[in-house]
Design a protein around this nucleic acid. Sequence first.
DNA 1: CAGTGGTCTAGACCACCAC
DNA 2: TGGTGGTCTAGACCACTGA
Lengths: 246, 246
Amino acid sequence: MTLTRTEKERSVGFHPLYRQVKERLVSRIATGAWQPGQIIPSEFQIADELGVSQGTVRKALDEMTADRLLVRRQGRGTFVAAHDEARILFQFFKLTRDDGGREFPDSEIVAVEQTKATDEMSEKLAIATADDVIVVKRVRSLSGEKAVSERIVIPAARFPELDTAEPVPNNLYGLYAERYGVTIAQATETLKAIACPPDDAALLGIKSGTPVLAIDRTGIDLSGRPVEWRFSLCRTDKFHYLSDLK
Amino acid sequence: MTLTRTEKERSVGFHPLYRQVKERLVSRIATGAWQPGQIIPSEFQIADELGVSQGTVRKALDEMTADRLLVRRQGRGTFVAAHDEARILFQFFKLTRDDGGREFPDSEIVAVEQTKATDEMSEKLAIATADDVIVVKRVRSLSGEKAVSERIVIPAARFPELDTAEPVPNNLYGLYAERYGVTIAQATETLKAIACPPDDAALLGIKSGTPVLAIDRTGIDLSGRPVEWRFSLCRTDKFHYLSDLK
DNA sequence: CAGTGGTCTAGACCACCAC
DNA sequence: TGGTGGTCTAGACCACTGA
C-alpha cells in the first residue's frame, strides 16, 4: 500500500488520505491515462488498487465531481467530464440573450497566426518573453447576430501546429482536451465597460465608441498553470453577462 | 423519531434523510431560532434529537456549509454564518481595484423614500403592483474614490420602518439579517455596458456618456423568494468586476 | 483534559441501469 | 440479475480548541 500517513507527513502538514487519492486520480486525467468521456473503474476497484476503503475513494470522487472533473451516473458508473458544448455553456460561456435563451455561439475565424509573445502575453501566460504564441482572432454570434469580437493567445509549445494542422474548431476547449490533453479546469475573468475601438466595431457591425463589455480571461489547467489568455469585447445591447452569486 | 421514510414518501419521490435534516436545520435559521453568529448544537446532539446517526447530520451540515449558511471551526463548533463584511466581500461584492486590492466599500446615502412599486419593481420582487416599497439611493466609494451609483428596492412589508427607524447602515445585508431575520442566501446578476446617464455621472464625478458597468441584481432569501432588487452603475476606469469560473 | 469537528473504516441496504 | 453509485449506520481514532 503506497498511500499511508508517515510520521514525517504527519509532522510537516496534515494531508488526509482522500486528498492523496484525489491527487492521484487527477493526475491520471492530467496525463491522459483517463480520457474525456471515458468511464473510470468502480469505487471498489479503485479502493482495492490503492489499499484504502471505498468510503475514502468516494470522498475523493465527490470532490472531483464538485470540481466538474467527473460526472457520476447512478447505476452506470463514473466518467471523466468532457468539454462538450453543454458543459462549456454552463461553466464558461456567460453571455446570454436578453430573452434568457442560452445557446452555444457560432464562430467565424478572422485570423490565426504564430508570433513572438509580447511582454503582456508572456506575463499572462507565465512564459518567457518572445516565446512563440498562437493568436486566434474570431467573431462569435448568437442567433445569427454578431455578439463577441475576441483574441485568444496560447503558448505554441503546448499546442504544436494548432495554427496550421486543421481548421480551428468552434469549441476550442474541446480541442485542447482531446488533441493536446490540456484540460481547462477553471478561469478567472475581469470585466470592464469600455468604448468599442474602431476595428472591433467594424467586425461587430456597431458604431465605434459604443459601450461594450470587455472580458479579460485567463484559463487555468489541472495543475493550476495559466494556459490561455482571452480578451473579448461583447455587445450588450441585446445580450447580457450572467453571474450567479452563491 | 419524526424523520423516517414512509412507504408513501418512497413511492412519490425519494428524499434522502440528510436532506430532510437539512431542511429542518435551514428553517431554524429562516425562522430566527438560530441567529447569525450563534453556535449550534454539536453533531451528536442534533443526531440524538432527530433520531438519526451522526454521519447523516454531518452530511446535512456539510451541504449547509457549502451553501455558506454555516461556518465550521474544528475544535470549537459549528456557527450560523453572519453577513459580516468579510463574507459579503467574498460572496457578493465583486468590484475590485485594478491593483487587486479588495476592500469593503464606504457608502453615502443620497435618498431614502417609501413609494408605490412600479410594474418593473413588482415584477422583480414578485409582489403586487403598487405594493409599498422602500427605495434607497447611494454612492459607494473604494479607497475614497467614488465607484458605484446604485438604487436598491425592497418590499416595505418585509422591512417595516427601515426608511425612518434609523440611519441606513453601510452593510445592508447585515441589517436585513439581524433586524428583520431576512438572510440573503444567493443573488443573480445581469451585467451590461452602457453609457452613463447624466444624473449618475454627476454623482460619480465623471462625464455623462462614459461607458459604465450596469449590474442588475436580484437578491434571494433562504426560501428562494426574491427580496431585493438592486441596480448599480460602476466606474471601471480604475476598478473591475471579478468573476471566477469554476 | 474534555469536547468539538475531521478522517477512515466496514458493512448493510436502496435506487438505478444494462444485459 | 448483477453491477454501479447513493444512503445510512456504528465505531474508532486524529486534530484542534479552550478552560
